[in-house]
C-alpha cells in the first residue's frame, strides 16, 4: 500500500488529520480545474469547498478502481458544470428582471477572465482564448481545459472522462479546430 492509498484508508476511517492532508495536497488541483471551467475566482473557490465537502461525505464510496486524483477530477468537473448551469439559470432570471426594469439584474455580460498562472505578456491572448473556450461544446471544453490548464495527458483525460484515448484525441482535434475558427472570426471583427 503506497502513501496515497494509506492516506485514503485513514480518511475512510474518519481520521480528521488525514482529511487536512488531503485538502492541502489536492486543493490547487481542484481549484485550478474549477477555475479553468467556470473562469471566475470566487466561483472556483466555492466549488473547491463543495468538492472537499463531497469528498468527506462520500469517500467511503471510493473503491480505488481509479486513482484518487482521477476521482477528484470527476467530482470537480461535475460540480463545476452544475455550478455553471445554476449560474445560467440565474442570468436568465436576471435578464427577465431587467426587462421589467429591476435593478437587481447584473453581470449579464461576462467580464474578461485573466488566469493568474498565465505569463504577463500572454494575458491578453489567453483572455481571448478563454472567451472562445466558453463557446465550445462541453466535452471539447473539458478535454481542452484538462490538457492545457491542468497539463493532463490524453491517457489521464481518457480515464477522467471515461473515454478511449482515441475519443480524447478526436475531442482535442475538434476543440482546436473550433477554437481556431472562433478566434479568427473574433480577430477579423476586431481588426476590421
Amino acid at each position: 500500500m503506497n502513501e496515497s492509498e494509506e492516506l485514503i484508508e485513514q480518511l475512510k476511517k474518519g481520521d480528521q488529520s488525514s482529511f487536512s492532508v488531503v485538502v492541502n495536497k489536492y486543493q490547487d488541483l481542484v481549484y485550478n480545474t474549477a477555475l479553468g471551467i467556470v473562469q471566475n475566482a470566487e466561483d472556483a473557490d466555492d466549488i473547491t469547498q463543495e468538492v472537499f465537502v463531497q469528498v468527506h461525505l462520500s469517500v467511503s464510496s471510493f473503491k480505488g478502481d481509479s486513482k484518487f486524483s482521477t476521482w477528484l477530477y470527476r467530482i470537480t468537473i461535475s460540480k463545476a458544470l452544475d455550478h455553471e448551469k445554476k449560474k445560467k439559470r440565474k442570468k436568465r432570471f436576471a435578464f427577465v428582471q431587467s426587462l421589467f426594469g429591476s435593478h437587481e439584474a447584473e453581470d449579464i455580460h461576462p467580464v474578461e477572465f485573466n488566469h493568474p498562472g498565465v505569463q504577463l505578456e500572454r494575458k491578453e491572448s489567453a483572455a481571448d482564448l478563454f472567451r472562445a473556450l466558453k463557446q465550445l461544446p462541453e466535452n471539447q471544453r473539458i478535454a481542452f481545459t484538462l490538457h492545457k490548464v491542468e497539463g493532463q495527458t490524453h491517457q489521464e483525460i481518457a480515464a477522467i472522462m471515461n473515454l478511449s484515448i482515441y475519443a480524447v484525441e478526436s475531442l482535442m482535434g475538434r476543440a482546436k479546430a473550433n477554437l481556431k475558427k472562433l478566434l479568427e472570426v473574433y480577430y477579423h471583427k476586431k481588426i476590421a
Partner: peptide
Amino acid sequence: EKIEEYTDKALNSLDGVERASVSPYLLTRI
C-alpha cells in the same frame, strides 16, 4: 496574416501556464 498571427498566439497562450492557488484558510471554510 495578422489574424493568423493573433490566432496562433492565442492558441499557444496557455503553454507553460502555472497552477492557480486557492485563497487561504480553505480548510477552515470547509
